[in-house]
Simulated assay, not measured.
Amino acid sequence: MRTLVLGGIRSGKSQWAEAEIAAAGAVRYVATGAPPGGDDEWSRRVAAHRARRPGDWVTAETTDVPGALRSGPALPTLVDDIGGWLTAEMDRCGAWTGGSVSGSVDDLVAAVDAFTAPLALVSPEVGLTVVPGTAAGRRFADELGVLNQRLAATCERVVLIVAGQPISVKEPS
């Protein structure tokens, strides 16, 4: 089953997704965030995520999420998070200044659609706060909102995490 796990910052979405997919046994964890690179606060966040993972999980730190999904379609996988992937793709495609990520989004959605093992995709939910005050922030929110909608249509299950509590948005039919 493919599950899209949505939530705001610090909502508990990563922890919920980790606990949910842990039932699959050994898991491949695809981490999309940028390496800490001298940012102490970011380093602590990354370290906390790493410390929570069971010892038999394999971690791949990459922004090539479609490639990672295609390279191991039979491995239970958790991707954390789609916002990190989108940021990297927007950088790569020049989307902050008018470039398009539509081809990248199509590729990701196709890779998710073809994935056959248990899959959890963690993504920030947009629209739960103020409209971003910059053009780049609005562009990111718009792109992420469209991407989340496309992933939700592809996934059998969608869960919204609020204050650590799961709310079922879509269940398998």
Rank of each mutant, 00 (worst) to 15 (best):
P54I: 05
R53T: 13
S71Y: 02
T77H: 02
R92T: 12
A48P: 05
A95N: 06
D80I: 09
S43D: 13
I82C: 02
G98M: 11
G33F: 11
C155G: 08
D81N: 14
R157I: 00
T32R: 05
V109M: 05
A74M: 10
G137V: 05
E89L: 12
V159W: 09
R138E: 07
E41F: 07
T87S: 15
S104D: 15
W85K: 02
T87V: 15
V146H: 06
S102A: 15
L128M: 14
A51D: 14
G55S: 15
G94Y: 03
A68G: 06
G72N: 09
R52A: 15
V101K: 01
V146T: 12
A136F: 12
A51K: 10
T116W: 00
L78N: 04
V122F: 05
T59N: 07
T63E: 07
R138L: 04
N148T: 09
V126F: 00
G72R: 10
R157D: 01
A136G: 13
A48I: 12
E125Y: 08
N148S: 07
T87M: 12
G133H: 06
W42V: 08
R50S: 04
G38R: 03
V112S: 03
R52K: 13
A136D: 15
L69I: 07
V101F: 06
G99H: 07
V105C: 11
W42Q: 13
E125D: 14
A68H: 06
G127L: 06
A110F: 06
E156P: 03
P66G: 07
S102H: 13
D113Y: 00
I161Y: 06
L86T: 05
D80V: 11
E61T: 09
P54V: 02
R92S: 10
L128R: 13
D80Y: 08
V126L: 01
E89C: 09
L128G: 15
T134R: 04
H49S: 02
T77S: 03
L86E: 06
V65E: 04
A95Q: 08
A34K: 15
P132Y: 07
A110P: 05
E125Q: 14
S104G: 10
W96C: 00
S104C: 14
R44V: 02
G133Q: 07
T63W: 01
A74Y: 00
G72T: 08
H49V: 02
A110Q: 14
R70D: 09
A117E: 04
G99P: 11
D91Q: 13
G38C: 00
I82F: 00
D113T: 13
G38T: 01
R50A: 12
V79N: 06
W96Q: 00
A141K: 04
G84M: 13
C93W: 09
P118F: 11
E143D: 15
V122W: 01
V158M: 08
V109K: 07
A141G: 13
G33K: 03
V131D: 09
A110E: 15
R53H: 10
T129K: 08
G67E: 03
T77V: 03
D81V: 07
A152E: 06
L75T: 12
F115K: 05
A48H: 14
V158G: 09
A47M: 05
